[in-house]
Design a protein around this nucleic acid. Structure first.
Length: 425
RNA sequence: GGGGAAGUACUCAAGUGGCUCAAGAGGUGCCCCUGCUAAGGGCAUAGAUCGCGUAAGCGGUGCGAGGGUUCGAAUCCCUCCUUCUCCGCCA
């Protein structure tokens, strides 16, 4: 959510910046009228409430002195009615204002390239050597199925499309990756490990920005009004929701493994085969709560932590600075890390590293005091995948495949795989 | 799933409709006393948020959350949440 005072004071400038996202801003024009109406109603209602407070004291005194207060009470009854009407009107105006504010995306940072589509994302760097095969490389779903480590058919039977069974060394590879990533972030990068709930309530999803606008992307448990988390960003960022932190605690760095659940509404027909787009997938997430002045340096740091995983796995990748059209709702700036998928002859997203500035903190009420007694300020929140595990498995299978259909296990994972060096039939 | 109890500020805690627009204590901060420390004494302490105002400041909200009754609600009524506890069930 944007700062309502800043929007008020710099309406045209804010609107101009938001328009770069290519977002429909027709609702946004109603802001000024509603904001003014709101403050006008507040003034009116507060004058009456102040009067009511005073007169109620007078009535108390009169009653104590056994004086007749009927006339005053009658008058105050009318004032009470008037307050109720104004409060109702105020509530309506605030609901409308809130409706708009909760659906306005974040303002892009000045270092974000302008663009109309994903074609305008800017490649910042590439890393690693793409493998060259002397044979026809197989897609990871064929490799996984032939090696009997992935079973899409049975998952479709047991649950439905876009689910998978990992089996044998496949399951172990997934688990090895999770542990490898967590250990790296904990031991080398200084993160604290969190194992969060996989269901979150409406307030939490609103805090991180998935709600109210993107409900159709989520699985919903109606009975309890819980949502399956689409990323552990949700429970982990909301860990400190409605809290005022001590400035000395910052930066807070959490890493969390969780399963993630996405309805993938609207992506019918895309990536229908393989591990790239599943309704349920594993991910190790990085979350940082930082002081505002540090957040852009922190974004570089966080992105580096995610890249390190790919470097140690020796998987080729590139980093993109996402343009205004491809930023997502909540981010002020976002880097996507894309891993090389040989059979698709392209890089595919494996991590998204974002600085949300105070956009999520404002929604989730996460604040800090720079020193004891100082006024609370919003923290800046960041997160990034470190990494999406299923897509990492896809990348390993495809990049490390051999002519006979076996797959070499990256060296750093072997201690997590019982010392095995290769996955064969 | 069923039954009980509770939720008040940083902590503990009083408070059954108006001299409480939250008493008191602890803690914390500042000060006094003292050669130093302890003990003792004094003062301060509702954080947060919203609105008006150039500002000093003024006002609204606030007793787990949200509604309601009333001239007036921490207090009465309704719904919900959380914690503790007993019974049942369960990994």
């Amino acid at each position: 959510m944007l700062d309502i005072r800043k929007v008020r004071a710099n309406f045209d400038e804010v609107k101009e910046k938001l328009s770069k996202r290519g977002e429909d801003l027709s609702d946004f024009d109603k802001f000024s009228g509603l904001d003014e109406k709101r403050r006008e109603l507040i003034v009116k209602t507060e004058v009456l409430k102040a009067e009511r407070n005073n007169v109620s004291q007078q009535i108390a005194t009169m009653k104590r002195n056994k004086e007749n207060a009927d006339e005053v009470i009658l008058r105050m009854r009318e004032v009470g009615e008037e307050i109720k009407e104004l409060d109702d009107e105020l509530r309506e105006v605030e609901e409308k204002l809130n409706y708009i504010m909760m659906r306005i995306p974040n303002i892009p940072h000045e270092s974000v390239p302008f663009g109309d589509s994903e074609d305008d994302n800017v490649e910042i760097r590439t890393w690693g050597e793409r493998p060259e095969f002397e044979f026809e490389a197989k897609p990871h779903w064929d490799l996984g199925t032939d090696l009997n480590i992935l079973d899409f058919e049975r998952a479709a039977k047991v649950t439905g499309s876009r689910f998978v069974f990992y089996r044998g060394l496949g399951a172990r590879l997934e688990r090895a990756l999770i542990n490898f990533m967590l250990d790296l972030h904990i031991d080398e990068h200084g993160y604290e490990e969190i194992l969060p709930p996989y269901l979150a309530n409406r307030e939490s999803l609103t805090g991180t920005g998935q709600l109210p606008k993107f409900a159709e992307d989520l699985f919903h448990v109606e009975e309890e009004d819980f949502f399956l988390i689409p990323t552990s960003e949700v429970p982990v960022t909301n860990f400190h929701r409605d809290e005022i932190l001590n400035g000395e605690q910052l930066p807070i760095a959490f890493t969390a493994y969780s399963a993630n659940f996405r309805s993938e509404a609207g992506s019918a027909g895309r990536d229908t085969r393989g591990l790239i787009r599943q309704h349920q997938f594993n991910k190790v997430e990085l979350v940082r709560l930082v002081k505002p002045e540090d957040s852009y340096a922190e974004l570089e740091k966080l992105t580096g932590h995610a890249e390190k995983v790919l470097q140690l796995l020796k998987l080729p990748y590139r980093v993109l600075n996402m343009c205004t059209a491809d930023l997502g709702f909540t981010a002020a700036k976002k880097y996507d890390i894309e891993v090389w998928i040989p059979t698709q002859n392209m890089y595919r997203e494996i991590s998204s590293c974002s600085n949300f500035e105070d956009f999520q903190a404002r929604r989730a009420h996460i604040r800090y005091r720079s020193e004891a007694g100082a006024k609370p300020e919003y923290v800046h929140t960041l997160n990034g995948s470190g990494l999406a595990v299923g897509r990492t498995v896809a990348a390993i299978l495809e990049n490390y495949q051999q002519e006979d259909g076996s797959v070499i296990i990256p060296e750093v994972l072997r201690p997590y795989m019982g010392g095995k060096e290769v996955i064969t039939k």
